[in-house]
Design a protein around this nucleic acid. Structure first.
Lengths: 345, 345
DNA sequence: TTGTACGCGTTATCAT
DNA sequence: ATGATAACGCGTACAA
């Protein structure tokens, strides 16, 4: 079946090919009547312009992309909503691209930039252990959102931008809060400890808090999620906590380094007969909406998602416009006391 | 900045343009040494082929797409995972495309098919009140998954396929279950009642159950979610239930027509001081993972997500291969009794 | 095994 | 205001 093209439309309308193009793209210099006539034919025939051909020619795209690693993470859903809005306000279009856990986000970015003539990129999630060599091929501005301090070690800070919270510091604050409630046996459900990652930073923050107060931290209570399944998932929080419970170690609080893990952890505790927070306190990190709805509502360290997303977009456009070169912005997180933590009894 | 192209590589390697193309695309008829040499240069230069140009030429794409309306819906996340796996097993690639709530999914599909040379499409979510005229322009096989019976009225059944559950019937079953527990004052939190939609079908099922048993159903207890915000969201379940509570109407059970609404509803009830299920029973629909983790775990009508997704992919490939023309498959849902429903006291 | 040349469908440039 | 035509970057007959 022969695809219907702009040529067919032109022929059928008895006009030139470029006139049709003008009609499609809302060019000013075209006779309104001609345009109307063309648009009518287009509707009748059901003609749809081929985007590949368009992108091939186009030099000006007015679009940016956000690459998301970890589709199911509610934190990202929340951010994306804001990014979408902000981008629209700038009259840009937003390409939303999911990156599989086994894919290299930089490779995906490189392809996408060429394919869609993007002006900028926002990375959400992932580890970013990228070689400078590869990422230096990325000629458009890019921002790491939510994973700020992570990237800094390998890469030249002047090459990229970031918007994030200080995961280590805020995690330390969360742990301190639990310590101040009188808890000493605080189990931590950590997403990764080996890889340089957000999970690792938050784990270090946990250790910092103990060190600051001169309280020894019990290594038996440091629990990493299972490697084989999604690190940030309720299931993993559940399984890891279940193993913790079954190990027989005593604890009075569980700090899960992500709310989504905290919910899985809570389930495991409730099933084992613990009451929250009467028997065990549960704390999370991130401040996702879901935590507010859970029963009990999860006390958490809340990232200012809305502000971060807005700032990310604003910064990206500043860089695109040449008003800035790069910037590393760190937002404060805020302790959100809800229902899942109590004083140690 | 001049983008680096296949031509540059050819020149730099001292070979023809098509030799480079052969190297990139793993063509058999190329000297392994030449290929190695070319690949080395490609790596050094960081050359990335332009997908737009490729798609423009390509006739064989070996890829399908899934268009998702409602990114945040966990039910869809669950399905997508399965679809991804199954597609990969068939050695096809999967294009995952989100459709904004204000976009027309058929328009998006039309564009995408041309742009990416897709061989088939899976629609997830949306209302599908599409005119036959528009959708008839879609020349590749397409399947509506999870919204089966909805589409049938306007469209010729031989034009498309569907995989779904019988929302009306299963919703009736869920309601019957509550009636059998002794509940009579069953409030329903419904996503839409006006538009022809899944929410509407489930509401009709609710009414059916009352009718079957000859029990009058109290219209004051039929509550529709707020129009302005996402119909399938915890927030909407929460707000709608809150309004219900504030209205002062008496009820002993709340049936939310989606688990995600049920969670919002539960929060509202708990905040108002009700215990679940001791004071009020809560029931949902869909069977999303989250419901299992909630406290109390939400009793629900579970859609066989995995089987549905697998079947959807299988069916699509059968149609692509010409082994079938179309098919409308209805899966049974199953009552999953968890913790949120009890007998009326 | 390799290179040349054409065409995919569109937009942009330049005439007219 | 409109039309002809040259790119855009790549794949692929076809020739060598």
């Amino acid at each position: 079946m022969p695809e219907i093209t702009i040529k067919d439309i032109a022929k059928q309308c008895g006009v030139g090919i470029s006139t049709v193009s003008r009609a499609i793209n809302n060019h000013p210099d075209i006779n309104p009547e001609t345009k109307q006539m063309i648009m009518d034919v287009i509707r009748e025939t059901g003609f749809v312009p081929n985007n590949s051909a368009r992108n091939l020619k186009r030099t000006d795209a007015r679009s940016i992309a956000v690459l998301v690693k970890g589709i199911a993470n509610p934190l990202f859903s929340d951010m994306i909503k804001v990014i979408e809005n902000e981008t629209q306000r700038k009259k840009y279009s937003l390409v939303l691209q999911h990156v599989e856990y086994y894919e290299d986000e930089v490779d995906v970015a490189l392809e996408l930039v060429k394919e869609k003539r993007l002006r900028g990129i926002i990375f959400l999630g992932g580890y970013f252990l990228h070689s400078e060599e590869k990422i230096s091929n990325l000629k458009v501005p890019y921002i790491f959102s939510t994973v700020g301090t992570l990237v800094s070690e390998k890469l030249d800070k002047a090459e990229y931008s970031s918007v994030s919270v200080d995961d280590r510091k805020e995690s330390c604050a969360m742990t301190s809060y639990l310590l101040e409630l009188g808890h000493r046996d605080i189990a931590i459900i950590s997403a990764e400890s080996e890889i340089e990652s957000i999970g690792r930073l938050r784990l270090e923050g946990y250790r910092d808090a103990f060190a600051e107060k001169g309280i020894p931290c019990r290594e038996e209570l440091v629990r990493c999620v299972e490697e084989e399944i999604d690190h940030f998932s309720m299931e993993n929080g559940y399984l890891t906590t279940k193993r913790l419970i079954e190990s027989g170690e005593k604890f009075t609080a569980v700090y899960a380094t992500a709310d989504i893990l905290a919910i899985g952890a809570s389930r495991a505790l409730l099933e084992a007969g613990y009451r929250i927070p009467e028997d065990v306190s549960v704390a999370g990190f991130d401040g996702i909406e879901l935590g507010k709805y859970y029963n009990p509502a999860i006390t958490t360290m809340k990232q200012p998602v809305k502000e971060m997303a807005e700032t990310t977009v604003k910064l990206l456009f500043d860089i695109i416009a040449g008003r800035k070169d790069y910037e590393h912005i760190v937002f404060p997180a805020s302790l959100e006391v809800r229902e899942s933590c109590g004083e140690r009894r």
